[in-house]
Design a protein around this nucleic acid. Structure first.
Lengths: 199, 199
DNA sequence: CTGCCACGAGACAGGTCGGTCACCTTCATC
DNA sequence: GATGAAGGTGACCGACCTGTCTCGTGGCAG
């Protein structure tokens, strides 16, 4: 059997190029706004190569959502937050420092998980279910931070924090460049009220 | 000239039936998810009748957004809020009582203005600009309430309140039935901190 | 050299999209 | 009854969609 096929982590493999192209396009223009032809054109790949690696477009979308969690949730948000603060409460507040720099970017693509959830209105659609799960994974990260910060109800607290994050993202998409700072001020109030020791 | 054409407010006129059908379909399934054929089928109207009243589908979308502001923002949200509380601060908090009943509904269509803004990624698209404006109109309502409640910075306060509203709507779409109550608790904190007298 | 297979290029199928057109019925007015 | 406009009917257009299929080619294994 061919060596390249036996190596699923092949860097310049067709699957990876397709996934990278789809990720950029879907995050920026939405999944409904981008056709598979556009994806294969950007990936410089034959259409059949795409369908050899992904059964349907929905499968490709699910893969891009996983890539988004890897690149955005973990390697960007969580890593940046960990780098910027030591205490759990300080890391929760740092979320909005990171958001502040994100919102300052010229074109804000928004939260891919929210965007995709809204694009698929059927509540039992696999893509929508996956988007909801990826959002829940972000919330779990917040819940662990809240627990470490010593709040009474980490789950409830993380859900409130997530409301601030999602609301500020929508506001930033509307054009409010200060949305992150506003959400952070609310977060400070929340911590002040519920945490033993704020940052 | 014909009488019916001279009466733009004709109740059972074709334009109104089309607009009602488009409103229900677009709010529930999004604008990209519904074709004009589906609209004319639901309105029981000929396709040419639609294009005699609306130049393009985008024009129809703009009209449905205005209808949404009339029915949702004004006749539902603002009227319900006014009915439930007397003080400005109490009315701001009542927003989340109304949301709580809304979120309990079986199928939550979400905020049409947010959904439509996300559907049109081009920041200068007329439909996106209209969605952003309709969101700003909601915020202006909040700003007036905040000013009446005697907060220092009504504009900034209303933007924070709007973050809570939008974040709670997204959370409710994910399935959190208690999202309204969570946002309300945060709102109580905000009022406690910034308003002279809470409800 | 020969066979194999991943891949590229591109046509193709079947459907839906937004939007247009020609033709016909209905109905109020003169 | 004649006239004229509004609206219904259904065909139609070009563009785009997802997904399939064929054919050609290049590189690697035996």
């Amino acid at each position: 059997m061919a060596l390249r096929a036996a190596d699923p982590e092949s860097k310049s493999g067709g699957r990876d190029r397709i996934l990278r192209a789809a990720y950029e396009l879907f995050c920026r223009f939405g999944t409904r706004g981008v056709g598979v032809d556009t994806v294969v054109a950007k990936a410089k790949v034959a259409k059949m190569t795409l369908y050899r690696h992904f059964a349907t477009k929905d499968d490709l979308i699910l893969a891009t959502l996983q890539r988004r969690e890897q690149l955005w949730t973990r390697e960007w948000l969580q890593d940046e937050v960990s780098r910027r603060a030591d205490t759990p409460a300080g890391q929760m507040l740092a979320v909005f420092d990171v958001f502040g720099e994100w919102f300052a970017a010229a074109e804000l693509e928004g939260c891919t998980f929210i965007n995709t959830m809204i694009e698929f209105e059927a509540t039992d659609h696999p893509v929508r279910l996956a988007s909801v799960q990826h959002l829940a994974n972000i919330r779990n990260f917040l819940r662990d931070l809240a627990a470490a910060a010593g709040v009474d109800d980490p789950d409830g607290f993380s859900r409130k924090w997530h409301i601030l994050m999602k609301g500020s993202i929508i506001s930033a998409m509307e054009g409010d460049r200060l949305a992150a700072r506003r959400a952070q001020e609310i977060g400070e109030l929340l911590l002040e009220r519920h945490a033993v020791a704020a940052a």
